[in-house]
Design a protein around this nucleic acid. Structure first.
Lengths: 236, 236
DNA sequence: CCAAAAGTGTTGGGTTTACACCCATGT
DNA sequence: ACATGGGTGTAAACCCAACACTTTTGG
């Protein structure tokens, strides 16, 4: 029994309006020719997160992961032909302006229109997508999809791509600002050829994931202020 | 290298006002005498959830798990002395009125006042507690802590125990009712010796976990009604 | 009739969406 | 000037906590 693989979902909100995932065309026997998530075996001297980061760096040259998060274990005895392989799945995000040089046999695929995948990798990708969508709502994960500096319109496109529906720039601005996730840099972008008011440039206040909307509904007495002491443990 | 263990956090909201976890006093060499989570090795023909259910049934006679959920993988190379062991941690819940017969060398411990634990099991328990607290807010997991039928006061005690602070019966009632999680059975409980209005008995509408408060903040256009189409994928 | 426990009405604060309106720039 | 984006103001909807008040029982 192989001990563990780590399929990593490396996703990037792409300019057009889609969320994309990096897949690898299998050259080896089980499910040859199908698309699979990058990953590999866990070494005895590393933990699973270290392992997935190493796999992505070594095999597909992805070294700029802005955020990495564990999704869960996939362990159905028949998920892979032959001896059972336990996989720990991850979600990895890279900013939209990063375009790593990936090997010949890999390419980016629209998460909403996946090709035939190997093993249970489609299930894993969809799981990752749902996790990302959820966290966009109550955390600042957006920072992992956006460039260091961006306009609200650009951010709106990224959120729309990841969520799968159109979000309004107005509200995106206000919600993220009130939560203290968005900070104006003072600079502005120059308008396009067609004119229009120059857009202010923003950045995320933090570059590590935090819960920005703790939504505990049965909340403690609440001594403090603001949307206040709504307290909730992060969900993972 | 052992391939995987599955520490299962079996928790129960207890009458007094505490959240408790079932721990096992180790009789074997590494960390002998310390308290550890029940669990064991994964068999080649079962998935991790099947495994943890089997372990709990076989070793501590816990067969009445109302809810089981994966927490994540713990894989630090030194988390256990000797060859590395990868563990998949679980949260399991049993209703407050169930009191399984457990072996001599196990007992229930207040999660807020844990004894010295083996390995990283304290971290796992606290992780489980946080997950439970989070899900009490936006799902109907309460069903897994409560008996089949209960009064709002009793439910209030369970929520207070699990959350670690006092929740008001009034709002608990209203929130769960609005969300469609709570249903009156029509029956009532007789008041105690000191009098008082007889309490109505309720039950949870569903006995499987569902997201009752999808809190997507950038939500889709919203064609429908109610707190409406706030849509979010479950986080797990 | 009084105390005790349960349940309902009402108010107020906070958050978010929707939409109208003003601002700045290129042609 | 006008079209084109960008940004702010404001109103309506919704949800939740707190608290007062009513209902139903035992002593």
């Amino acid at each position: 029994m192989r001990c563990a693989t780590h399929p990593g979902v490396v996703a990037s909100g792409d300019e057009p309006t889609t969320l994309r995932v990096l897949l690898w065309r299998r050259a080896l026997d089980p499910h040859i020719g199908r698309w699979s998530l990058p990953g590999g075996r866990l070494r005895p001297d590393e933990d699973v997160e270290h392992s997935i980061r190493r796999q992505l760096a070594e095999k597909v040259d992805v070294k700029t992961l802005a955020h990495v998060e564990q999704l869960g274990v996939f362990s159905a005895p028949a998920r892979v032909p032959g001896p059972r392989v336990v996989a720990t799945a991850f979600l990895g995000l890279i900013p939209s302006d990063v375009d790593p040089v990936v090997p010949e046999d890999t390419s980016w695929h629209d998460v909403g229109d996946l090709p035939r995948t190997a093993f249970d990798h489609q299930e894993i990708v969809l799981h990752a997508r749902d996790r990302l969508r959820a966290k966009l709502s109550y955390t600042n994960v957006g920072f992992a999809l956006a460039p260091a500096e961006f306009t609200v319109s650009a951010l709106r496109q990224l959120y729309s791509a990841a969520l799968g529906y159109r979000v309004a720039a107005t509200n995106l601005q206000r919600v993220l600002t009130r939560r203290g996730a968005l900070v104006p840099t003072g600079r502005t972008a120059s308008p396009g050829r067609s004119g229009g008011r120059p857009a202010a440039l923003y950045r995320f206040a933090h570059r590590d994931m935090r819960v920005t909307d703790p939504f505990a509904v049965f909340r403690p007495p609440a001594p403090a202020a603001g949307r206040g002491s709504r307290t909730r443990g992060g969900t993972a």
